[in-house]
Design a protein around this nucleic acid. Structure first.
Lengths: 340, 340
DNA sequence: ACTCTTCATTGAATCGTTTTAACTATGCAG
DNA sequence: CTGCATAGTTAAAACGATTCAATGAAGAGT
């Protein structure tokens, strides 16, 4: 069925298989006339290289694995695009795996990448997978952590200072005169969430008049946010500010607060700030204040570091940390000129 | 470095390589005592199967390719998730490729999947790629079109009736009393866009008092929508309705219309409807009316059909068409109770 | 005329897994 | 006790591309 191999091309062109291979991989080593002759045969027979065979010989594939927590979160697709763009320049493809915050699926993807002998792996991990990544490294597959540093710093990472971001968010709320803040997010096993909360706590502690309550979720989704928002809106005593662990959650909270029947006003009654500054934040019911992260840049940089590690496996791990940035829109400040 | 192969496992366990392979693939053919012995060696040595070698022998990989027009569009990530879920049950992995509406990238991904001898390919194509897909089929790789039928129906497809959706959208606008409708979308080379426009025209023609103007974009993105929206908002004579080819465009248009300085009101001055009903539509500045498509179901069904074609390559192509559904929110009807 | 380079090409070995046909026990029936 | 099925295991032959040492041919230098 498939059946056109280098051997067939070689026979058709009247050369040896070695020459056919050279035409494809080292054309300079082959006489121009032969190159064209072989090319012609390739086209004529519709030959397509069998990547498995090439990989087998080569030792590893031309792909890079990327495992993200949630493909539906635009932040991660932006990271993916950044990585993809950089990878393409190297002739590598990015295989995007979606762990959906499920350790079993994360594990399954790592196994897949290992079986495929990927060039390397970028991962935004759920729990602690240092051991797993060490095994990969032992097999010659480097890994770079994305959006999260490794506990013992043995792996390179590209992060954003989530503690600073969390502090930034709550300090902004405080500077807008809010004192009863609710943090909505979870699970806390996700490091980013824990860090953002820690930052929030730092800010709150620095201002004793401020209280900080934590509402935990079991997933960072619009749905989960909606549920938490409904619960808060139904309270007798409302908080005056909500800090959501990411924009998806914030959008869900916002939907619930604005539902007809509820008479909560944003930002008058409750100020709301999210995290990530996804494209949709600016287009929300009430344009959403958020903490911006350079998503594309993160993916790009992570891939860059990965390439260095491939080239030089013994280099010591690198840690790049980006600074987040506060974007103020109407959801926290009635007078804000909404940034786009 | 990597270097643990079946051979090493075999030696360590004191059996032959064939037995090791059987332990992994046909355990029933092996004596229970041997199975445990071999398993132990596998664990002890940290053996991980080299997928390239397996593929080479096997003829094709355990992956399915999926090429979408835009990963940043939640509609497509939902399709991907649907496909992934179904694939996982079969022990297959989905490799997600993002063509970004660029035929060259689409081509590159198809080539990758061909080189990898994928099990099959799901694709939401840009232009006409019947020829390309026929070549794949000749090589034993079936393809199913997603969200778009093949012109000559030689390939299976899972679609939504975009003409009906387009008509539905404009008929809704008309029923809300609108008469000067602008269609914003493009490029028209994307079939879905052309079909939605065709549906819009059908509806408009059925109501002679209605005019339909077309503003073409070169990409279906928030940015492109924003630009078109700004242009429209600046006009002396405003239309009273806008039908955007998808929700991303609609969100962009909405942002532009609602920008401070503009005094266009939605829906009072201009009613706006999008397409896809992505999660964010309900959370927009003005909750967005839209045409809902069963995204997850589409992915799921497409993979189902693909599996059938793998099992039975000579079956005649199947065509599944889902019906879209109108979701009314405040962007077209001030009194709407916003659906969530 | 001879050797020495250089350039182009070849053939064989290699990567790691799966499969198939052949082989060896072991048990059982005749 | 011979013959035979059966279960378990093995060794060897694939799969298809790449690479490397070896070969051949053509040109340059003496």
């Amino acid at each position: 069925m498939s059946g056109v191999s280098v051997k067939d091309v070689a026979r058709h062109a009247g050369v040896s298989v070695g020459t056919v291979s050279n035409v494809m991989n080292h054309p300079s080593k082959v006489a121009p006339a032969t190159v064209t002759k072989v090319q012609q045969s390739i086209d004529e027979l519709g030959f397509v290289r069998n990547d498995a065979a090439r990989q087998l010989r080569d030792g590893h594939s031309k792909t890079v694995g990327l495992v993200v927590l949630d493909v539906r979160n635009p932040f991660f697709t932006d990271v993916a695009r950044g990585a993809e763009t950089r990878a393409a320049k190297e002739g590598l493809s990015v295989i995007l795996g979606n762990s959906d915050e499920d350790p079993a699926r994360e594990q399954a993807y790592l196994e897949l990448f290992e079986q495929q002998r990927s060039h390397g792996v970028l991962i935004s991990p759920i729990g602690d997978i240092t051991a797993r990544l060490s095994a990969l490294r032992a097999r010659g597959i480097p890994a770079v952590l994305v959006d999260r540093a490794s506990p013992d710093r043995t792996f390179s990472s590209v992060t954003v200072d989530d503690v600073a971001g969390g502090r930034m968010a709550v300090e902004h709320l405080i500077s807008e005169g809010r004192t009863r803040v609710v943090f909505v997010g979870g699970p806390l096993s996700i490091r980013q969430v824990a860090d953002r909360l820690e930052g929030a706590e730092l800010a709150a502690r620095a201002h004793p008049e401020t209280s900080l309550e934590v509402v935990t979720l079991d997933s960072l989704s619009v749905i989960a946010g909606r549920k938490a928002g409904a619960e808060i809106a139904a309270r007798a005593e409302l908080p005056d500010a909500i800090f959501a662990a990411n924009d998806l959650v914030a959008m869900g909270v916002l939907q619930a607060l604005m539902l007809q029947g509820s008479n909560v006003r944003v930002p008058e009654d409750i100020a709301l700030i999210g995290y990530d500054d996804i494209d949709f934040a600016a287009a929300a019911v009430v344009p959403l204040s958020s903490i911006r992260q350079p998503a594309g840049m993160i993916g790009h940089t992570a891939l860059e570091i990965l390439l260095e590690e491939v080239a030089n496996p013994d280099a010591s791990p690198r840690h790049v940390e980006f600074q987040p940035e506060l974007v103020v829109r109407r959801s926290t400040s009635a007078s804000a000129v909404d940034a786009v």
